[in-house]
Amino acid sequence: MKNGVILAIVSSLVFSIMNALVKAVSLSIPTAEVVFFRSIIGTVIIFFMMRHANVAFSTEGIPMLALRGVLGALYLITYFYTIAAIPLTDASILAHLAPFFVMMLAAVFLKEKPSKKTLALFPVAFLGAMLLVKPFQFSSYSVHALVGVLSAGFAAGAATSIRYLSQRHHAYEIVFYFLATATVVSIPLMWNNVVIPSPLEFFYLVCIGVVSLIGQLFLTKAFTHENAVVVEVTRYIGIVFNAMWGFLFWAEVPDLLTVFGGVLIVASCIALSRSKGR
Rank of each mutant, 00 (worst) to 15 (best):
I40Q: 11
V34M: 07
I29A: 08
I162F: 00
F249G: 07
I9T: 04
A53D: 10
F260E: 05
N192A: 06
L213W: 00
F47N: 02
T181R: 01
T118H: 13
F247C: 06
H144M: 14
S275P: 03
V266P: 14
V233E: 02
T220A: 12
I214D: 13
T160L: 15
G261S: 07
H144V: 04
L13Y: 10
Y79F: 12
F138T: 03
L256W: 15
G153S: 10
Q167M: 10
M190W: 11
V108Q: 03
A53C: 06
S92H: 05
W250C: 08
I187D: 09
V253E: 06
S140I: 02
F15D: 00
F241M: 11
S142F: 09
N193Y: 15
S28Q: 13
V230S: 08
N242M: 14
N3D: 06
Y172M: 08
S92D: 04
V102W: 10
E226V: 02
Y172D: 04
V175G: 07
P63F: 11
H52A: 12
C269E: 10
A145M: 07
F80D: 04
S166R: 03
I83V: 15
V22M: 11
V102Y: 15
F260M: 09
L213G: 00
L74Y: 10
L217F: 12
S139C: 12
V259T: 13
A180P: 07
E173T: 00
V14K: 08
V230P: 04
T78R: 03
M64V: 06
K111C: 04
L256F: 15
F241G: 07
F178H: 05
A125L: 07
I196G: 06
L146N: 06
F109R: 07
R68W: 01
H52F: 13
F15R: 07
F247R: 01
L105Y: 05
L200I: 03
A158T: 02
L150E: 02
N193V: 08
D255F: 15
P87S: 13
V211S: 08
R38V: 02
L105K: 02
F36D: 03
L131I: 00
V253A: 13
K23H: 06
W245V: 07
V124I: 14
F241I: 01
V55N: 01
I93C: 12
F100T: 05
T89E: 09
S26P: 04
Q216R: 05
A243K: 03
K113I: 08
I9V: 15
N19E: 06
S11W: 12
V194C: 14
K113Q: 04
K2P: 14
L200Y: 12
L13I: 10
E60V: 10
F101P: 01
T220E: 05
